[in-house]
Amino acid sequence: MNKYYLNYLDELESEAIYILREVWAQFENPVILFSGGKDSILVTHLAKKAFYPAKIPFALMHVDTGHNFPETIQFRDDLIKELGVKLIVGSVQDSIDQGRVAEEKGKNATRNALQITTLLDAIDNNKVDCAIGGGRRDEEKARAKERFFSHRNDFGEWDPKNQRPELWNHLNGKHFEGEHFRAFPISNWTEMDVWNYIKRENISIPSLYYAHERDVVFRSNSWIPMSEFLKLEENEQVVKKKIRFRTLGDITITGGIESDADTLEKIALEVSAMRKTERGDRSDDKRSETAMEDRKKQGYF
């Protein structure tokens, strides 16, 4: 038996580290887009490995909708301290106050779409030429054709028909002043790969991913956490449930699932038996068949 081959997780890890190092070598001022979700935590963990024993050479950029889980913010601040890296916060509230965007109205109002303006402003103001994201191709069909190095024009827009071909391991990040790139080092990972890797490396993640008791409201087929931002409908009731979250976004749109999985082993086991995609509980993707594609074109994550 030939031992000189990598297993799939090692190969995915090696590929992601290669991409992160290419970002560092090809751009002046890259940042990691950090949401506090498992995918951006994973990217940060991989960056730590890629540059060890040096520090992560990127700032972490958080687009803060103001509608956060408090646990996420605590986790973010602890991680920043541990890694000794800079945090850049783009605030959606500031964008609203400055009149750059207007808050959505109605029961299902979210700040999800407003993030695009805040993100692009933060990229502009901080002269960021590459924003590294935790997007994965298996997440959504508009992402299936995303490149590792994804070109954005000077309006921050994604043109799916005008992306650079990526052959072998050649990544071309050349750009003109004002343009920027998005880089996706974990493009080839699936949700299951992410969990298997988090488990293997024992990466710490926010407690929200583990099963816990919480006040929730049943809406659009999932359990939406009760928060000060949620406007209850007449027939809706707040109940206590043992739930956990599969993805973390805005507290107003992230639905939890009923679960007893309170360890990484149990989570991985649960995910492997899941029969629904993880974004199936995200109301931002349910708005239309092409919701993700449309937001991506405008400059979404």
């Binding site: 054709k145 028909k161 992306q163 493009s187 299951m192 594609e293």
Partner: peptide
């Protein structure tokens, strides 16, 4: 394996699309 809106409208695949699956033996 349906792709982006432009492709669906034209009924063709234009670009390389990546898909993933795992069996007990391989990814």
């Amino acid at each position: 394996t349906d792709g982006l809106r432009d492709e669906r409208e034209q009924g063709i695949t234009i670009d390389v699309a990546y898909r993933y699956f795992t069996t007990p033996k391989r990814k």
